[in-house]
Design a binder for these strands. Structure first.
Lengths: 169, 169
DNA sequence: TTAAAAAGTTAGATTAAACTAAGATTATAA
DNA sequence: TTATAATCTTAGTTTAATCTAACTTTTTAA
């Protein structure tokens, strides 16, 4: 079994993916800038990543992924984006903070929790038009799933209890 | 300015608080067990914490907090509990996972984000009986606060749009 | 009341991730 | 086309957190 990546390694991989998208080509200088470290730290980390078969790197040349490395990087980036989305669109943090925080949270959050979070966001976005007893409903959604129809049905039922006369005004 | 605590230091302080509550008295053996490390690691960390004026520790004796250390420990524990609450009661993770995860997330989450999260949970718990356009409403809640009355008013207004006839059934 | 067990410490090594200083390679431009 | 600048690497150091092995102190119980 392969040993798990360290948080720092994940951060580097993620940055490398982004740099590749932006610049086509990935160089030590830019990784250093992006990670806020000095170039020798990058060289050293690149050696570690290469030893783990996550990147290719020949002395003085550009950096590139192995297939394994690319997969890992994308996985990390995916986690990042979900957390970013939650922080920005649910908790309403500004983009910069949301990005910082997501970057640190990635390494703490298991994929089980991430899945739950995705469910939760999906739920909120599916039923933004409101529902009664939100968390109770979320629980049943986790068990049985949701649909627009179910939401409306649930809403009607809940309204009955809340406004017993059946009238809204 | 005091240098910030490392994640590990926060973890130790938090555990020490818990042990003190459980056992009255805090000993190296139990810290080692609680942190899943060997005793020499504990001794070494206790020296660091003492140097930072967070605990008292005389050779071969029990560990205790300084006032500063207690404050830090309680702050960390507070963060932990909020995250635990979110993971358990909102995302519906089981207790053990929620605790693990909270322990790792603590070090990633800023107090600004924590505050937002508390707001969010408070909102959910205040208005569990449902509201329309959830996130939009959460935003206005962040601006202006909420109350049961506001929630009901908002709900009625939203219902008007959703069931134009004014009838629920 | 003292020998064995339990608890704690010290010394020294290891690992990951950073750093500085100095040297090597590559690219640029006068 | 060669001197300078930019980029990158090597070598060696530092810090935080861990470990093992060996030693010391304290506790326990025969």
């Amino acid at each position: 079994m392969e040993k798990a990546l360290t948080p720092a390694m994940e951060d580097y991989l993620e940055l490398i993916v982004k740099l590749k998208q932006e610049n086509k080509v990935v160089r030590v200088r830019d990784i250093a800038k992006g990670m806020n470290v000095k170039m020798p730290s990058v060289t050293s980390m690149l050696n570690s990543l290469a030893k783990k078969n996550l990147i290719h790197h020949e002395r003085y040349e550009y950096v590139d992924f192995t297939p394994l490395g690319l997969k890992q990087a994308q996985k990390a980036l995916h986690k990042h984006m979900i957390l970013f989305n939650f922080l920005k669109n649910v908790l309403k943090l500004d983009s910069e903070h949301a990005d910082d925080e997501a970057c640190r949270m990635e390494h703490a959050v298991s994929s089980a929790t991430l899945k739950k979070l995705v469910e939760f966001i999906r739920f909120i976005e599916l039923c933004p038009k409101g529902t009664f007893d939100f968390l109770e409903y979320f629980k049943s959604h986790c068990r049985d799933g949701s649909s627009k129809e179910k939401c409306e049905k649930h809403l009607k039922e809940s309204l009955e209890k809340f406004f017993p006369k059946g009238r809204v005004q």
